[in-house]
Structure formats: structure tokens, C-alpha cells
Design a protein around this nucleic acid. Structure first.
Length: 586
RNA sequence: GCGCCCGUAGCUCAGUCGGAUAGAGCACCAGCCUUCUAAGCUGGGGGUCACAGGUUCGAUUCCUGUCGGGCGCGCCA
């Protein structure tokens, strides 16, 4: 509908250019928005205000000319010039009534569109280090990313959902060492666990799995493990040097093959856990992309070569540096360390190179806001190797702070004292978690009130929306109990009877649904859809309270049932995009 | 210190590319169940859009500065 109004305006402006009322080269950016107040109509445009200067006419005068040049449309009942020069459009009743059969005919596809034109888009999200279970911070990225992907899919993009597995690097070595040490304890060795190791209970579980699988095969005396290892922090040493030495000792004592078995077992178990966690949360990927594969198949080397070939590199202190400051980064970055190892950044260049080579029109990365400083260097690298950094969008998701009984919940993976996503899901349910996570725009810090999310009350927006859906089902159950049935065709013939203000409001909201999905998708803002659904539910609840649907007059009854069936469809479609269930009864 | 994000009602937050009288939910107050689920509805009070300048027909929105909060500034990932 919005696009229809925009089209009418464009026609009018073309006409005015043809007659010379507007300069032929006037920049035409037609803006149409929903009128805020009723008296401002259903749609309003400020084109006359923005073009007045170029046309050298007073805004109101220009607005009048535009209105006269507007082509007739059966969907528009009235057009007015108002205020300083706004053009207000009032839709005809036909435009409202049409939405009911339109929704019912479209069914699950109502709100879907083709603006994306099948363009391939990749959405990479969560991508948490496989060093432990997902915590509640990852949950927001998961819900947000999954919903952005769903929205893009709904408006016609070909969406590829991907998880980048950080299965290389020091953190994973720390995990492997942590697992091995817990395993040694289970073998009966007495040792002091490193302060910088992973201390969560799940490490014992993996150690136990290793022991079940391999018995004492990887056992070494604690004395041999800790011989000549530099002291840990509590003993006055450096915790980083301590853990690094333990990693080297593990590799030495176990040998490459056995070390790899320990390493891979930890990776496998944790990854399986993450995967299951996300699946239960309704988050499913097309691809799990391994960082290690970039090293093993030479992509990382190839990336380094391309950066070198760009000339934006130099050697310093034995390391290879990428001069990212050439592209506006605040300092240069190491890509190959003094010890010959490539940095995480080097792998990330290779990964993004690979993404673009795979032919995505747009690549969307969803990162935690703590990685914001990382954006310029990745874009710089893409620019240096001749790729277009404009194809990469990085969306930063702020942390969610959990409140429980008014108190903040602390989280830190290393110490093992964190609230996991799984715990959150168990506590508030998947639906509330998915809904709450996308209720705020991503760059907003979010206070996640666990007590509210879990409360089965009117305060809880997710129940409010779901209840509207369930209530409509309930009406149809009542219909049967009264021995009636719904004649949809008859209802559609009599939609013109739906003249009550509540009915008009509900139809207006239904008309807005496709616009909302499109706007939310293109702006990557799921919260717009969440807020829309609450409003739609409100429009239904007020209607429900004011009018009886199951009236004796069959024509009116059928028409009303068509309307609420359409509302039910729109709510269900919207909730599905959010990954929230639409229950038939509550 | 530098960089990024944020600051809107008592609380949590919307506010589309600069537009018309700044909105919603919660909380608070007053009402509504012989009627399709009261997990609902109706009405009411509540604002220096952090502060100070600037840009213009017009600023919550754009620019500069100040204050306050979060995050980042490794040859970690």
C-alpha cells in the first residue's frame, strides 16, 4: 500500500516536471510515512516541503500542484494539503476491506515479498569459541541473528546462515590442557589446577569421557607434567606463562597424535553441546565453518599472499604487519607473529575473503559489541586485497544484563560462574527468551528481567501476543460448540460490514504487516516486528472486548470471523519469524 | 588519554531520510467478568527528549563541546 502511494506521487512529480512546474533535474526522493494522528490520514508525504526550495514555490502551493497532478486511484478516497505543506492520503474503504481476503488467500506467505530478488546474503552469528557452553550473552546474538536471517528470507533474499568455529588458536589449547589435567585428576593424579584454565564442571565431564574412551592411555605422572613449569599466579608467577608452559608440556608428553585426540574430543563434545543448545532454541545453520580448515586447505596462506601483494605490509620485530592505518584503522596489525604463527586476524582475513569469493552480495557479521574495535581492520584488509568492504555489514550486539530479583547476574566463562543460555531457556522458556532478546534494537544495552520474562501475566509481552492468537482459536472452538460453522466465502462477500472503528483499526494494522516486515528486514531491526505484534495483539484484544463475534447475523458473523482469522494469520506469521510459537490454547 | 555505542515519563524502552500536539508497556490511581479465556479492556496523572551552543522554514533526530554510563584500545581469540 505504501509503495502504491509512492508510485502515485512519483507520477505526479513526473507530470509537474513535464509541464515545467518543477525543474527537470530536481532530486526526487519520495517519502511516504504512516500518518501519526488520525486527522493526518493514513499516509503522509513531505515531498512538497523538501522540494519547495528547488521549485522556488511555497510548500503549500507546491503541495496543491502535486495533489492536482496525482493520478486517480480506487484505493485513495481523499487527499489533503495540511500544515506547512504535508500531503495527507486517506485510504478508501475498499483499500481496507481488501486486506482481509488478501491475508486469508496468502496464508503463511502473507507478509512475504520479493524485494530481495533472490540475492544471496550470508548471515554469520554467534560463532562463540567452542571452549564452553553458550552463555546468555551469546543468546542475544543467537536470537537476533536468527531473526534477522528469517526476516531477510521473508523479503526474498537467499539467506545462508553460518557459524564460524574458532577451533584454532591458544584458547583451544587452553581448553585441551584443561581437559587433560582434569582427566589426570580422574586417573588419580594430584595436581593444582592452573588459575587460567577452564574451570567449569563441563571440563570434568569431558575429562571423564576421555577416560571412558581411552582409560589410562594418556596418563602421565603429575610430577612429570609440572616439572620445571614456571609458577602460577597464586604462587607469585605469571598465569599466562604458566598455562602456556603446560600446553607445551602436554604436547610434548602426549605427542602430536594423542594431543590432537584430547583436543578434538573437547572440541567435538562442546560443539555438539552448542549445536544442540541452539537447535533447541530454534536456531539452525546451513553451515558450520571451521577456522582450522582455513589453515589446512591453504586459504590462510593465500590470504597472506594477497595482503603481501597489495603492498600494504612491512616487517618489524620479526613479525609481518598489515598497514591497516592506510585504510583508517587506528594502528597497524600483526598478521604473522614473530614465531611464524598466523594471528587470528590473518585467519579472519582469509575467512572474509572466502565469504566474498563464495559470491554473496552481502555478508552480515553479527558480533558482540566488545569486538567493535575489530571492524576497521577487517574492512581495511578487504579493501587492501581489492574486495569491496561495502559488501560487509557488521552488526554489533550489546550485552544483555540479566536481572533476577532486582539483582545482576554475573558471568565469566573462565571462572565457571556464568548463566548459560540453556539455564535461561529452562528458566523462562524458549518463547520468552527469543521474544525478549529481540525486543530492543541491537545497539541498545539491554536489561533482561528474568522475573518478567517468566511471569505468566499481562506484564509479559510475549504472553500478551500469544494469548491473542490462542483467543482467536478459542473463538472458533466456541463457534463449533454453538453448532455453527464459518462460511469464509460468505464472510469475504460481506467484509464491507466491518465498519466499526475497532475493525478499521485492526484492518489498518493488518495492512501494515508487510510494510513492517520489509522495513525490519532491510534495517536489520527485529524489534520493529516485536513491537508491531504487540500493537496488533492490542488491536485484537480491544476489539474482542468491545464486540461479540459470534452474533446471530450470519453475514456479519462470517465477516468478523474472516477478520479475526486474518489477524490470527498475521500474528502466527510474525511470531514464526521471531522464532516464537503460536499456541492454539493457553 | 584515544576510539565506538548509549543517555527520551518513577522503571524498561519505541520514535523510519530532519516534520504536524514526543508514544507504548510496567508501576500508580479510578472503573469493567449472569456475555466468544479478566493471561483481557476503559479512563487518569506523570516529560527542560542529559546539558550548552550551532546548522534552518522546522531539531528527540544533523554538527561541536561538556557531563554521565557501557565497551574497546595484545605478536589473545
Amino acid at each position: 500500500m505504501k509503495h502504491h502511494i509512492e508510485e502515485l506521487l512519483r507520477h505526479a512529480l513526473q507530470g509537474l516536471k513535464a509541464t515545467g512546474a518543477l525543474p527537470a533535474d530536481a532530486a526526487v526522493a519520495v517519502e511516504v510515512e504512516r500518518g501519526r494522528a488520525r486527522e493526518h490520514g493514513d499516509f503522509a508525504s513531505n515531498v512538497a516541503l523538501t522540494l519547495a526550495k528547488q521549485a522556488r514555490v511555497k510548500p503549500r502551493e507546491l503541495a496543491q500542484k502535486i495533489v492536482q497532478a496525482l493520478p486517480a486511484s480506487e484505493k485513495v478516497a481523499k487527499v489533503e494539503v495540511a500544515g506547512p505543506g504535508f500531503i495527507n492520503f486517506f485510504l478508501s474503504p475498499a483499500a481496507f476491506f481488501g486486506v482481509v481476503p488478501a491475508v486469508l488467500a496468502a496464508g503463511e506467505s502473507y507478509g512475504r515479498s520479493a524485494v530481495g530478488a533472490g540475492a544471496p546474503v550470508q548471515v554469520e552469528f554467534v560463532s562463540a569459541n567452542p571452549t564452553g557452553p553458550l552463555h546468555v550473552g551469546h543468546g542475544r546474538g543467537a536470537a537476533y541473528g536468527a531473526t534477522v536471517a528469517n526476516l531477510l528470507d521473508a523479503v526474498g533474499f537467499k539467506v545462508h546462515r553460518e557459524y564460524y568455529i574458532n577451533d584454532a588458536g591458544r584458547q583451544m589449547d587452553i581448553l585441551a590442557a584443561s581437559v587433560w589435567l582434569r582427566y589426570l585428576e580422574l586417573c588419580g593424579e594430584q595436581l593444582v589446577f592452573p588459575s587460567n584454565g577452564y574451570k567449569g564442571d563441563y571440563i570434568y565431564d569431558i575429562g571423564a569421557a576421555l577416560h571412558r574412551e581411552s582409560g589410562d592411555q594418556f596418563r602421565h605422572p603429575a610430577a612429570a607434567v609440572f616439572r620445571d613449569i614456571p609458577p602460577d599466579e597464586p604462587q607469585g608467577g605469571d598465569k599466562e606463562r604458566h598455562i602456556d608452559a603446560l600446553i607445551e608440556r602436554a604436547k610434548g608428553l602426549l605427542g602430536p597424535a594423542a594431543y590432537r585426540r584430547v583436543f578434538d574430543l573437547g572440541l567435538k563434545i562442546i560443539l555438539a553441546d552448542i549445536r544442540q543448545d541452539l537447535e533447541e532454541f530454534g536456531v539452525v545453520y546451513d553451515q558450520w565453518f571451521s577456522e582450522r580448515s582455513l589453515i589446512e586447505n591453504g586459504a590462510a596462506d593465500r590470504a597472506i599472499e594477497r595482503v603481501k601483494a597489495s603492498g600494504h605490509v612491512y616487517e618489524k620485530d620479526g613479525a609481518l604487519w598489515f598497514r591497516s592505518t592506510d585504510y583508517g584503522d587506528e594502528k597497524d596489525r600483526v598478521v604473522v607473529r614473530e614465531n611464524g604463527q598466523k594471528t587470528y586476524f590473518a585467519h579472519d582475513i582469509a575467512y572474509h575473503m572466502d565469504k566474498l569469493e563464495r559470491g554473496f552480495d552481502r555478508v552480515i557479521d553479527i558480533w558482540g559489541a566488545d569486538h567493535h574495535g575489530y571492524v576497521p581492520r577487517v574492512k581495511a584488509a578487504l579493501a587492501a586485497i581489492g574486495d569491496d568492504p561495502g559488501r560487509l555489514d557488521v552488526l554489533l550486539v550489546q550485552f544483555a544484563i540479566l536481572y533476577k530479583g532486582g539483582e545482576r547476574a554475573q558471568m565469566s566463562t573462565r571462572s565457571g560462574e556464568f548463566v548459560t543460555l540453556r539455564e535461561l531457556r529452562r528458566e523462562v522458556g524458549n518463547d520468552a527468551a527469543r521474544f525478549f532478546y529481540v525486543l530492543r534494537k541491537c545497539e541498545q544495552h539491554m536489561d533482561f528481567d528474568l522475573d518478567l520474562a517468566k511471569s505468566q501475566s499481562a506484564d509479559n509481552p510475549v504472553y500478551y501476543v500469544q494469548y491473542a492468537h490462542a483467543r482467536i482459536h478459542s473463538v472458533f472452538r466456541q463457534l463449533k460448540e454453538k453448532g455453527w460453522s464459518h462460511d469464509r466465502a460468505n464472510g469475504e462477500r460481506h467484509v464491507t460490514r466491518l465498519m466499526e472503528p475497532h475493525e478499521m483499526a485492526l484492518m489498518t494494522q493488518l495492512l501494515r504487516y508487510p510494510e513492517t516486515v520489509e522495513t525490519a528486514a532491510l534495517a536489520h531491526e527485529p524489534h520493529q516486528l516485536a513491537h508491531f505484534l504487540r500493537e496488533l495483539a492490542h488491536d485484537f484484544h480491544t476489539y474482542y472486548n468491545t464486540h461479540t463475534f459470534l452474533v446471530e447475523d450470519a453475514d456479519l458473523r462470517d465477516a468478523r470471523l474472516c477478520l479475526i482469522a486474518a489477524a490470527r494469520q498475521a500474528i502466527a506469521n510474525g511470531l514464526t519469524l521471531l522464532g516464537v510459537s503460536a499456541p492454539e490454547s493457553m
